[in-house]
Simulated scan of single mutants.
Amino acid sequence: MLKYFAAFEIFFEENLPHLFSHFLTNSLTPDLYLIDWIFTLYSKSLPLDVACRVWDVFCRDGEESLFRTGLGILRLYEEVLMQMDFIHIAQFLTRLPEDLQAQMLFSAMANTHMISRNRRWAQVSNAHGNKEVEKTGSPALRS
């Protein structure tokens, strides 16, 4: 998961620099919300009908779509999150509003760019996985 957090933060900073800075200021790291989102495929935090659409896209597009969804959620609620402190952000991201509309989320996702310095998600993710292997000597972190 460390490589996913590192890659996610790169795209988070590039797509939403003000919110990224706000999260840093509040010491809010991706492990506090992203693990729950990814491990449950958003079924715990999104309304079920929206989560089902996210699952469809995941089946079609693969793991990148899960991270695009996360960034889409952050983009959709950027203004609200900018007004919150650590505890309120963490609570909000754990259980998103029930009235979240799939169309609004997918529109926010469409405005999320998954290319960093001419590298796509898989390339950025793999590059961070290789760095972890170099640091730890453990290929287990690559999976």
Rank of each mutant, 00 (worst) to 15 (best):
L46A: 07
R120F: 04
E134F: 12
H128R: 14
R117K: 13
P139W: 14
G72D: 03
E134P: 01
Q123E: 15
L105V: 07
Q101G: 01
G62S: 10
R119P: 00
T40I: 04
L48P: 07
N118G: 06
D85A: 08
S107P: 00
T69I: 08
N111H: 11
W55V: 12
F86H: 13
N111Y: 04
I73N: 00
Q103T: 11
T94P: 00
V133Q: 12
V57I: 13
E98R: 05
H88K: 12
W37G: 03
I38H: 10
Q83Y: 01
L96H: 11
N130T: 11
A102C: 06
D49V: 02
L141G: 15
E79M: 06
T136I: 09
T94I: 08
S138L: 14
R60N: 10
G129K: 08
N111D: 09
M109R: 07
D61H: 12
V50W: 07
R68S: 05
G62Y: 03
R95I: 12
K44W: 07
D85L: 07
L141D: 09
P47D: 10
W37K: 06
V80D: 06
F106I: 01
T69P: 04
E78C: 02
Q103A: 15
T40F: 12
I87N: 15
E132S: 14
E63G: 12
G70L: 11
L74P: 03
P47G: 10
R75E: 01
F58K: 06
A102P: 07
A90F: 07
T94F: 14
R117I: 03
Y42R: 09
T112W: 01
G70M: 08
F67V: 12
C59M: 06
I87E: 12
G62K: 10
A108F: 04
A108G: 09
T94W: 13
E134K: 14
A122N: 15
I38Y: 13
L71V: 13
L141P: 02
S65I: 04
L48K: 14
I73R: 00
L71S: 05
A122F: 05
R68N: 04
M84V: 04
L74M: 08
G72K: 02
E79I: 01
R68W: 00
S43K: 13
G137Y: 05
M109V: 06
V54N: 04
S116K: 03
